[in-house]
Nucleic acid binder design. Structure first.
Lengths: 256, 256
DNA sequence: CGCGGTATTGAATCAAGTCAAACTTCGTGG
DNA sequence: CCACGAAGTTTGACTTGATTCAATACCGCG
């Protein structure tokens, strides 16, 4: 098992396209919580709905529970001192939230639902008890932490050493994989987030994001209209994601 | 206790300047492992020296242990597919390494000593046992994970929404705090890393880093010669770190 | 139908990257 | 001990990718 390989997951086994998408380079985001699914004594987890636009929690508020996203798409962001927010992640199915609770720290981020979503809640008070009862919960947790750190590293890589086009291409491939793992099509999906939010996440301005979408479309890599997006040329996208030379491979197609 | 506040630490109590430096904005990097220091049954931790330039572990190798840095300064980096490395962090005293072991994953990063260093080693096989024996170890671990995530968030912020000068200023302030917490002077210290490594860490080129050092020096904020650095005007640096407008406050001093 | 929020597009600017050269420091070996 | 070479650093000139400012277009909704 190497870095790219994912741990076997009970959560994912019902998803048909998962295996295909697993290969889409950085698939690290799938965090499995088999112990939750198997469930038995894990009955402590209670579902909770979050309507679009509402917050699961806000930065600074006391952290009281762990959450696992069951479905939907959220946004976790760091509210900047200047009013501007910095988008850190778009948590989706299987992602864990509220880890600050374990450390006994107040919430460090805002978490808002980008669409109607549902999370499973485990009050932190019940955590130790649940751990001793549910075999594997703690291991799942460790795995999650590892995955979260790896995910952030990926993100750092995007922000640190990549061109704008690369970042966006990777982002799309990444999303494709995650949506696929959630049972949606890996080729055509619906961006839950605005250009501004994508920009913040990728360290770009919303205008740059918009421009790049247009350029990708002109190059025949994608078809995009507002938040509807279709990936036409996965390989081309991968090339754009990998290639430091934007004028190379996928640009040649421009002439055709 | 809020986000900025640090947990009480046995590791730090002998350090005189610590309290002063604690205030230096994002002091989150101090991860305390009181349970190690208190030690008693935690005798499982064995020290290990790492000479400058040698690796503690390499990406891809099986992860066998947890490590806590006792002294020295290391570099953890993601070896890029293209040969270029991406510097993720400069672990120092109190920082935990090898968390991949908990998740049962192979090492994801290279970790190399930038100076002669020492780490404490806990073989992963002994981990559960140590947890049950040493009260608080698991909590320390959770705290560490929380801190690590918060630290990465900080880093993301730097890379995402900040100008080059801001990033470097924050980096210096950050380093100052960490060195201080390790018993060194917060005002004058020795950079353990090259310009290229700083650049990689901050998402800049080495030339940009060099230029910015020169500029800070011209503006009277610092004095720098090779890797010897002295912070002359902490407040000015903080202003540079905070201010999105590089031409503002601290630039006025240029005229004087 | 008109309005507000979101997205696209264009033109001008600027920060940072790239390429290249000179200089310093340091370790090595003649 | 000094000369040499390698590695790391500084600085300059130039290029360019991305931001900024601003105008226009579009979609959804009351």
């Amino acid at each position: 098992m190497n870095v790219q390989t994912l741990p076997a997951s009970g959560l994912r086994q019902d998803v048909s396209a998962a295996n295909v998408q697993r290969a889409v380079q950085d698939g690290c985001q799938q965090i499995a919580f088999p112990s939750i699914v198997v469930g038995d004594a894990g009955a402590q987890w209670t579902p909770r709905r979050i309507r679009r636009g509402t917050y699961l929690y806000r930065a600074g508020s006391p952290s009281t529970a762990l959450f696992v996203v069951r479905f939907g798409c959220l946004k976790s962001s760091l509210p900047g001192d200047d009013g501007e927010e910095l988008v850190l992640d778009f948590p989706m199915r299987g992602d864990l939230l509220g880890a600050d609770a374990l450390a006994g720290q107040p919430c460090a981020t805002d978490v808002q639902a980008l669409e109607d979503s549902e999370v499973l809640v485990l009050p932190i008070a019940d955590f130790e008890g649940a751990c001793s009862r549910v075999q594997g919960l703690r291991n799942d947790l460790y795995r999650h932490f590892g995955a979260a750190l790896r995910r952030e590293r990926e993100h750092l890589m995007r922000l640190g050493g990549m061109r704008a086009a690369q970042r966006l291409a990777r982002f799309l491939i990444d999303l494709s994989g995650r949506f696929a793992a959630n049972g949606y099509s890996p080729r055509a999906f619906n961006l839950r987030m605005s250009r501004a939010e994508i920009g913040s996440y990728l360290g770009l301005t919303l205008e740059s994001v918009s421009r790049l979408f247009s350029r990708f479309q002109d190059d025949g890599l994608i078809k995009v209209h507002l938040r509807e997006i279709e990936l036409l040329d996965l390989n081309g996208l991968r090339a754009a994601a990998a290639c430091a030379e934007p004028a190379a491979a996928w640009h040649a197609a421009e002439a055709a």
